[in-house]
Design a protein around this nucleic acid. Structure first.
Lengths: 214, 214
DNA sequence: AACCCTAGGATAGTCTCGCTATCCCATGAA
DNA sequence: TTCATGGGATAGCGAGACTATCCTAGGGTT
């Protein structure tokens, strides 16, 4: 199909598609001649993923490019490829290691991983952006005076581990590694809004049950 | 304290504090004379909350103002006040109700609420921005070909209900309604990054366990 | 009492991001 | 031969979150 049709079927304007092509989020079409390129179903699928990452997930274009490049990299093993894609997602600035809240948060996160017995995460801790995000978020809560420590976090971590486990079960129903990695990224980026919304709905629901509408 | 000291103690530049004052995120200080204003600990606390909402939670300034106004509104009951604050958080655009994925997603979300017996949420559904967010996110997943339906979501919803329940237990340890509402908002906005990070960590951990590092 | 230095207010500028609009040229169908 | 159109290049736009500059009126210091 041509650019116009790709635009038509995806609901994304040709100008925007050209922009994504320029930014390397979408591989170029097969050149038919000097003025025409041909796109296939794979392009359409990729375009929908890009839109989902950017619009629903709120991932900046530059991050999205990085994440997608890991999905496409056939040379890596499963865990690494998955990890690489997930590692490319966060965008928190470096925490200030002088800040006592950051120091305390880091200590609690380390204790948490120990409590849970998450050995891989402990080994990866100094490098992992996800780990850093956790430290930053916990530090922010502590700065506001909420005493988040390893004991408080552990039950939540176990619940999220159940969630992750379910998702990996689901991931395994896909055949190709590429589809699996793509599914994992979609989970991380798109499933998180679902979780967040469920969380807020649950909060409203439970609040109404406990205290009524008043 | 004066503006300079508030800036010093919060780590936020005076220019930015002035900006927040202008935008109504921070109540003005007590005017000492024509050129000096006095700020107290409450201002410092509020400033930290504002920074957390904006920097960690990624809430736009305009949303933050709205959310804070609900925290401050003493005239409302607990559930309403809490709900109002949470309702002010999302920022998704209106979904396109013509889109078959949106229609299907809405149907599945409705079935989910029925399955769970979340009566309050069902009643609020047509109005609730949280409900809308859920529909948008589920629609995005379905558009990519992931078959999210009520049966798949229910276990996640129950897990998130457990999370919400724990948080409300914790919220009840605070005395004043204002503190409770502030805690609920902090939970929604700041605890979500924690949950997200835990989720991703768990995904990495479980993936490494199942497939090794390769 | 004179001086100057700074707090605080107002305003306009900056920087990033994610598009979007314009221009242009080469083709290829009529 | 004509001419509409696809595709590339480039510049512009609008929102959002600051940030830098200017200005004025105090108030502490001498």
């Amino acid at each position: 199909m041509r650019l116009a049709e790709l635009s038509e079927r995806s609901g994304v304007s040709t100008a925007t598609i050209k922009y994504y092509l320029r930014e390397g989020l979408l591989p170029p079409g097969r050149r038919v001649n000097a003025t025409t390129a041909d796109y296939d179903e794979e392009h359409l699928r990729r375009l929908r993923l890009v839109r989902a990452l950017i619009q629903v997930g709120g991932i900046p274009v530059a991050r999205a490019r990085e994440v997608l490049s890991h999905i496409d990299d056939d040379s890596l093993g499963r865990t690494i490829r998955l990890g690489a894609a997930l590692w490319a997602l966060p965008q928190d600035p470096e925490p200030d290691e002088e800040d006592p809240d950051v120091v305390a948060a880091r200590a609690e996160v380390d204790r948490l991983l120990e409590t849970l017995g998450w050995e891989t995460s402990r080994e990866m801790a100094p490098l992992s952006p996800v780990h850093r995000s956790l430290v930053v978020a916990v530090a922010a809560l502590r700065r506001l005076g909420y005493p988040w420590d390893a004991e408080l976090m552990a039950p939540y971590a176990r619940l999220m581990h159940q969630v992750a486990s379910r998702q990996l079960d689901f991931m395994e129903t896909y055949d190709s590694l590429k589809e699996q990695v793509e599914m994992a990224v979609a989970s991380a980026v798109l499933f998180e809004p679902v979780l967040r919304a469920l969380h807020r709905l649950a909060q409203e629901e439970e609040s109404a049950r406990r205290y009524g509408i008043e």
